[in-house]
Amino acid sequence: MNECQKTQQYITDAVDNRLSEVDRNFFEEHIEKCPSCRNDFELDALTKDFVKTKITRHTTPDSVAMRIKQEIEKQVASEQRTTSIFTRYPLARAAMIAMVVFGAAFIIYLLNSPDLQNTVQAANMMDQSIENYDLFLAGTIQPQQFGQSVDELREYFRERVDFPVVLKPVKECEWVGGVLSDYNGLSLAHLVYKMPTGIVYVYQANWKEVRKGNKISLSNGAITSLSQTGWYVNGSHDKYSVVMWLYNNETVCTAVSSMEKSELKEMFSTETQKY
């Protein structure tokens, strides 16, 4: 590297007074005898000063600052409205209390419990949905977002999973909760409808992934029925009704509830609305 190249590398630091004494001595000696490097240095220093003096500093216009604060307060209010459902609905409150009692430790225990990991891995989507339903009822799983209607969950699910989340408005629904989770790298969406008669849980996943069966699987009977008719209602479980359906060949939904199977199917069989 010749002297000019070395000097060029020092110019920026020289303008900002950042050179060590040794480097500064070298730099100053060089620009004494090299007008080209000197001019480059002087031009940069001059430009820096010029820009600094010319630029006017602005304060945020009051109207803009106000609007931002209002928007944030709106968010705060909506978070509080959704969480205050806990105090309005006894079941949600019970779930909240259960959550506080068992706390994070219990969830960590669940996550690390080899039994559960094995059963979950071996289980198919239908078994998982039953298990999750029980966890919801026990309050072990908490919705992350609440709303008075599915519309209020639209924003929460937006672009966070790789399939359209089916957000079906349901009559007489008191509140609805949403959860996103990750299972073996698959993003899943969960909805909980609080009905006067109890909880309806809908588990949603990417249909292509479920068909592949690598991470979440389904019985051949269910896959065939879903592919041919879009529905699968034959699964037999002692405790609950389980109904599965396809949305747009992209999303597979599994609804679990203690209501009658036909009633459950009816609930989701009219025109479905996605986000």
């Binding site: 978070e79 509080q80 969480t83 959550m99 994070a104 979950v120 799983i141 908490q142 990750d182």
Partner: peptide, 20 residues
């Protein structure tokens, strides 16, 4: 399955306060 812990009003207020 991994589920996040719930929030409550006090958390929300604290968050707003910190943010402000």
């Amino acid at each position: 399955m991994l589920f996040a812990s719930p929030t409550n009003n006090r958390d929300t207020e604290q968050k707003h306060e910190d943010f402000q």
